[in-house]
Design a protein around this nucleic acid. Structure first.
Lengths: 218, 218
DNA sequence: ACTTGTTTTAAACAGTTGTTTGAAACGTTT
DNA sequence: AAACGTTTCAAACAACTGTTTAAAACAAGT
C-alpha cells in the first residue's frame, strides 16, 4: 500500500518467518514487496538491520493485536487461567495459517539472535508476569517464587508443545483421533490438567521427598 | 579415525546440528572431516542424501545410547513415570553441551523434512507408546484413548519446554533462582505436577463442562 | 611391469548470494 | 526552467554455493 519502507518490512516479515534469516534472500523479499533489490540496502543499510527492524515490528504488531487482557477484579482465578490458556493456544495454533509475526517470534525463542533481548523484556516477560499473578492466586499463600515459576512453565510448556511439535503430533495420531486436538478441546484439557495439578501439589508444599525411590532408568 | 565415509558422517552431524541444513556448507563439513570437497559427492551423491544419512545415523546412535528401559514388572507406575521424565530431561538438557544427535532430531521436529517420517516411526512412536502404557496404568481403567494421549502430550510438553526455551528461561529468571532449574529439581516438579493432575482429573472423567463460563479474553 | 578398478585431489563450473554503482527518474525549490 | 536532493533502477561486483571434471595417486591382481 503505502511507503516503500513499509512494503519491504511487511514482505520481509513473511519471508523471514517462513524461511529463516539465512535462507531468506533479499531478492525474494524485494520481489514480494515489488521493489528493486537495491531498495533494502538503501532503506535499511544491510540484511541484518532489516531483520532487526522486522522483528521489532512483529513484536509491536503482536502487542497491539493481543493486548494483555483486563479482567474484572472479581474474576475467579480459575477462569482467568482458562482464558489465558485459551488465548495462548489461539495465538499459537489458531487462525489456520499462523501469522508471520508469531512464526518470527518463535524463531527467536528457538535460536535467539541479537533481536532477542528486547523481545524478552517487552513481550515475554509481561506475559509471564500475568500468568504468575494468576498462578499465585491459585497456589497456597506463601508458595516459594521458584515453585510458582515451575508451575507457570509447566502450563506454558503444555501449550507451546502443540505449536512446536504440531506436525509430529499429526503423524503420531490416527486420523480418527485428530478431531480431539482442536483449540477448544486442548484448552479444556490443559486447564483441567493444570488446575488439578495445582490443587494436588499444594498439599505437599515443603515436605519434600515423598514415597519416591530413585528409579534409575537405563 | 576409520573410513572416510564415517569421518564425513560424524562431521556432518555436528555441522548440520549447529547450523541447519541450508546454512551448513559442504566445504565446512569437509574441512571438519579433513577430506576433499569432492568426497561428499563421491560417497553420498549430493548434499541432500548426506543429510538423510546423517539423520538416520543420529537416530541409530540415540537408540543405542538410550534404549527403552526394561522395568521390572511390579514397578509402581508412579515410579516408572518419574524414571521416564528423568530420562527425557537428562537426554534433552543434560550433559552440558547437548550432543549433536539430539540437536538434529529437534531440528526435524521443528521443521520436518523428508528424513522425518522414518524418525517418527522408529524413534518417537515407540517412546510415546511406552509413556502411554505408563499413563494408562495411572488413569482410571477405560479412559478414552484421546484422553491418554492428551495427558502424555502434557507431560512431554513440560519436558520439551526447557529444551526449547532454555535460553529464554535463563533470560527470564533472576540469577538467584537459576539453582532451582536443575534436572533433578525439574524432574521432581514435573513428576509431582503430572501425578497430581492425573489423580485430579480422573474424577470428572466424562462429565464435561464443570463450572466454567467462557471467559472471553480480549 | 602392466593392467584394472578405486579413491583422492586441485581446479574449474554454473548459479546464487549480499552489496555497490552510476546513471536515470522524480519532486521541490529557486 | 534550472538546480537540487531524494528515490528508483538495471547492471555489475566479488564472494560463496553445490557440483563436476579430468588428471593424479593408490592398491590390488595378473
Amino acid at each position: 500500500m503505502d511507503g516503500v519502507r513499509e512494503k519491504i518490512l511487511d514482505a520481509a516479515g513473511r519471508v523471514f518467518a517462513e524461511r529463516g534469516y539465512k535462507s531468506a534472500t533479499i531478492r525474494q523479499i524485494c520481489q514480494a514487496a515489488e521493489v528493486n533489490v537495491a531498495a533494502v540496502n538503501y532503506y535499511f543499510g544491510d540484511k541484518q538491520q532489516l531483520y532487526l527492524d522486522t522483528v521489532k515490528q512483529a513484536h509491536r504488531r503482536l502487542s497491539a493485536q493481543f493486548p494483555l487482557p483486563p479482567w474484572p477484579e472479581e474474576t475467579p482465578p480459575a477462569n482467568k487461567l482458562n482464558g489465558f490458556i485459551r488465548a495462548m493456544l489461539a495465538r499459537m495454533i489458531g487462525g489456520k495459517a499462523t501469522p508471520w509475526e508469531q512464526q518470527l517470534m518463535l524463531r527467536e525463542v528457538l535460536h535467539p539472535t541479537n533481536a532477542c533481548r528486547e523481545l524478552v523484556e517487552e513481550y515475554f516477560r509481561p506475559h509471564l508476569e500475568l500468568l504468575l499473578s494468576i498462578v499465585s492466586e491459585l497456589l497456597p499463600h506463601g508458595t516459594a517464587a521458584h515453585r510458582q515459576r515451575q508451575v507457570a512453565f509447566s502450563i506454558i510448556g503444555q501449550c507451546l508443545f502443540y505449536r512446536i511439535a504440531g506436525d509430529i503430533v499429526d503423524m503420531l495420531s490416527a486420523t480418527d483421533q485428530r478431531q480431539h486436538f482442536t483449540i477448544e478441546q486442548l484448552a479444556e484439557h490443559i486447564t483441567r490438567f493444570s488446575l488439578a495439578a495445582i490443587s494436588g501439589t499444594s498439599d505437599f508444599d515443603d515436605r519434600d521427598n515423598r514415597a519416591r525411590q530413585p528409579t534409575s532408568v537405563s
